[in-house]
Design a protein around this nucleic acid. Sequence first.
DNA 1: ACTTATTCAGACAATTTTGTCTTAAATTTA
DNA 2: TAAATTTAAGACAAAATTGTCTGAATAAGT
Lengths: 142, 142
Amino acid sequence: MNAVYGLRALMYIAAQRDQEGYVSIRKISEDLDISFHFLTKILQTLTQHHILHSQRGPAGGVALAKAPEQVTLLEMLYILEGEGYFSECFLGLPGCGEQQPCPVHDFWRHITLTMKEKFSHTTLAELSDKVRSGEVRLVSCT
Amino acid sequence: MNAVYGLRALMYIAAQRDQEGYVSIRKISEDLDISFHFLTKILQTLTQHHILHSQRGPAGGVALAKAPEQVTLLEMLYILEGEGYFSECFLGLPGCGEQQPCPVHDFWRHITLTMKEKFSHTTLAELSDKVRSGEVRLVSCT
DNA sequence: ACTTATTCAGACAATTTTGTCTTAAATTTA
DNA sequence: TAAATTTAAGACAAAATTGTCTGAATAAGT
Ligand code: SF4
Ligand code: SF4
């Protein structure tokens, strides 16, 4: 769920990027209905990877460390789910590659390349704009 | 790993479809280096869903229950991983849909539809033919 | 009938993922 | 400096996934 929770939080944070100051993790966890401590841990990794900046103490919290236009979906997923996110192959045979491919190699490589392409051209800004315009939602329907 | 092991076994079995009789699960597990009991359980579900036919006793084993040309990758994945394989949405918010989509809905739906399309047009026959021609391999490189 | 080979079924165990809790460190305000 | 607020870090727990084992059922050969 790292990706799900992390992305939702990032979109939530990015959606309020015109507001000054930090957004507290407690507030995010309540609004998005995610366990506070678990979310904290996830956001920590985003902080460590310089997607977010954090500030302790009263009025502290987290804020975007870079412009959301420069944060791609691919980048976020790599951080949240590991670098192997798209390189994982379908059959997962060790030590394989172009030389001696498995039956689904070509098929699968085509799909992953397409996806990777799409994911690297979608930015946090685009996603959060939809939230701001009220076009979409981040929380569960009641 | 159900999908990985199941597909590998199916391709292995389909690759020898001109040979008479059953292929024993023991043999498959040894050749593909998969735990015998675990593989047995996976192949059982394929048998229950009439992809395979099984035969107990000496010279028993499993065999394809239908022509591999009529078994699609999509069908195999549905059985091995559950019907929700492609319907699972990216953010997994409960009770969502077209009316109130999340930020990645359109993006994600496009990807899953494309994949589903591709997966439903690839058959076991095509995949196993590559194995037979020696073009690809099913086991790990040494 | 007996033995052997095989799948079937389900209990059990190990591992990974997911989530919770406690304590520490930092920062602000008074 | 003291108190309040908030993230950081990591131990711990629960749940899901992955894998193992044992015994039963079935079929074939002798
Ligand atoms: S051959 Fe390609 S798809 Fe197949 S296991 Fe290797 S990397 Fe993955
Ligand atoms: S809106 Fe679409 S992509 Fe988003 S959670 Fe719902 S079904 Fe999934």
